[in-house]
Amino acid sequence: MLTRLLKHEFRATARIFLPFYLVLILFALINRFLSFEMLSRLESMAPPFGIAGAVGSLVLLLRLIYFILVAGVLVATLLVMIQRFNKNLFGDEGYLMLTLPVPLWQHIVSKLITATVWVIASGLVTTGSILLLSAKAAPWPRVWETLFAFRDIFGSAGLFLFPGAALLTLVSSILMIYAAIALGHLSPRYRLLASLAWYAVLSFALKALLLGISMALFLSQTWSIDFADIAADPTRINLIIAWFWLLPTAILSGCFFFITNHILNRRLNLE
């Protein structure tokens, strides 16, 4: 049933994102070919009737549209993520989705996977479009160079641990939004406002927790952490990442998931 939910979730969201990505890539390409260098070439040819000025305005306008599109993709990713969860489960569409014979946790997981994929895709497409627009040469040698430098510091395990921790942080952030929406749903009125308030509360609690972990990490004498020693040892760096980044993020994700699932299961009130 999860695969079927995913199929419908991707179908519902792809129709928004794919055209957006296509337009973004298209504008990056147009901007690349209609660039300021082309403008300076035009000026050097000293064309009549002020063509260079008109093309210059056009180039500026195209750049502006491109930057608006970049911002649009990022905002749309966030809005669609919130909208799909809120409207599809807690709005009128919930009357259909929540009466399907599917375990409720699968709704959360399907929306989480879809949102994670689109956040990553939006990031990749935006980065790709910037490269398309501005890269003078293929970026791959620089990418490999950075990866090797990274491996020298963090070891081979770090190459997997860092992206894993980053992915888990993304998952945790999405689950926090879901938990805030679900908690806001418990309010008898002004549910959207209540969700925003819950998001602020959860963010504050999360920051307090992170601060606590950092303080413990930096100040505690009981662990006798010698940072000079750690920096030279990739295994110890990775252990610190696992204990102080991965583990708390995994626990937090579990808590947010539990809160959301509990509310859907036991406290649902579609009005």
């Binding site: 009357y95 009466t99 406290r267 649902l268 009130n269 579609l270 009005e271």
Partner: peptide, 9 residues
């Protein structure tokens, strides 16, 4: 009817 469908607790 919503109670019967678990849309309300």
């Amino acid at each position: 009817l919503k109670l019967c469908n678990k849309l309300l607790s």
